[in-house]
């Protein structure tokens, strides 16, 4: 664990360093020479490591989860696509203007069933990040997604989306091609799409850019992913004119998976391997796959596509918390 270590990961990194040191060839030689058995000590430290990790990762603050959701090693859509599906065939372009690499997608096989999969894709290295605009899609990306969604509808394939973006692009080019219109269009059209849609928030669910791929019949979040109307930094800047208070803002925004579940925005939380998805992408992918298959099973049992769409509408319709005053409680405040 050399390099980028978050504050909350430091106690873990310390124990890991100790273990690595004990396992180093020099120490082993030394121990052999002096007739000391290190294995007991190593086992003890490994137990300690597990204890520390459980303590740290089961008690992450909203801001720590935000950092984990943005972790540079966190698996991205294409990693999960590779691990979950067979025969993924990437399709490109919105057939209008361009190909936005911040969103990827194409048909693939889930178990034995053809599906359409679309995901937001951040980049691993600097070059890829630039190519994919750090996972922040322009209008072209959302329009490509809609093109693929329509194809899924026509060929009776369930649609599976993976959300992972800090937000949609907000630069001059984004405005010129109408990123707002593209997002709004997706919100409306996905709500009417005549095929099941399963959404998984795998990392960052940043604002309208996330929502543009997040309308569905079943929405899951990975345990340490986040979903928010605004970034903690943006919120802190508005509230306190101080981006460094992002940690306080993260708490206020209620952006964790358990927050989202409790207000009815998502349907379930997918547990991550201890220490986060990036420590064991294979296990994480298996968990996601199991969840996708079970959601799909449930959606298959709906009697008709009309019921599917009406259920999807009612799901969205329930979102929001407000008070409905009875007429007697109403004051004369009617303008």
């Amino acid at each position: 664990m050399i390099g980028d270590v978050f504050d909350f990961e430091k106690p873990i990194a310390e124990v890991e360093t100790l273990i690595q040191e004990l396992k180093s060839p020099q120490r082993r030689e030394e121990a052999l020479r002096e007739g000391i058995d290190l294995s007991a000590k190593i086992a003890e430290l490994e137990e300690e490591l597990h204890r520390v990790m459980v303590r740290v990762y089961k008690n992450l603050s909203p801001w720590e989860k935000t950092q984990l959701a943005r972790h540079k090693d966190r698996p991205y859509s294409l990693d999960y696509i590779r691990l979950i599906f067979d025969d993924f065939f990437e399709l490109n372009g919105d057939r209008l203007a361009a190909n936005d690499e911040a969103i990827v997608g194409g048909p693939a096989i889930l178990e034995s069933r053809p599906v359409m999969v679309i995901g937001q894709q951040k980049g691993r290295d600097i070059k890829e990040r630039q190519r994919r605009n750090f996972g922040s899609a322009h209008a072209e990306g959302f329009r490509k997604a809609l093109r693929l969604a329509r194809m899924a509808e026509r060929f009776h394939m369930p649609l599976i989306t993976m959300v992972d973006t800090a937000g949609a692009a907000a630069d001059l080019h984004a405005e010129e091609l109408g990123v707002s219109e593209a997002i709004a269009h997706n919100l409306r059209e996905f709500s009417l799409l005549k095929t099941p849609i399963i959404v998984t928030i795998i990392g960052e669910g940043g604002s309208g850019g996330a929502l543009g791929l997040a309308i569905g019949d079943h929405v899951s979040m990975l345990e340490h992913s986040i979903y928010s109307v605004i970034s903690p930094e943006g919120c802190a800047a508005i509230l306190w004119h101080d981006k460094s208070r992002a940690s306080d803002a993260a708490k206020s925004l209620c952006l964790t998976a358990s927050n989202a579940l409790s207000i009815g925005v998502i349907d379930n939380i997918l547990p991550e391997p201890l220490g986060g998805a990036h420590r064991d992408p294979v296990t994480m992918a298996e968990t996601i796959k199991t969840s996708l298959l079970s959601s799909l099973n449930k959606l298959d049992s709906l009697p008709s596509v009309d019921i599917l769409i009406e259920t999807r509408y009612q799901r969205l319709r329930r979102m929001g918390e407000y008070v409905e005053r009875t007429p007697s409680e109403e004051d004369s405040n009617d303008g």
């Binding site: 409306r188 604002s207 979903y227």
Partner: peptide
Amino acid sequence: ARMQEGLLSLMQMAKTSASAGKLRN
């Protein structure tokens, strides 16, 4: 969207757009 209602505000984008879809249909 109203920041003070967090994710619930974000969902209003989806809700209102879905209702607009009904009008269109």
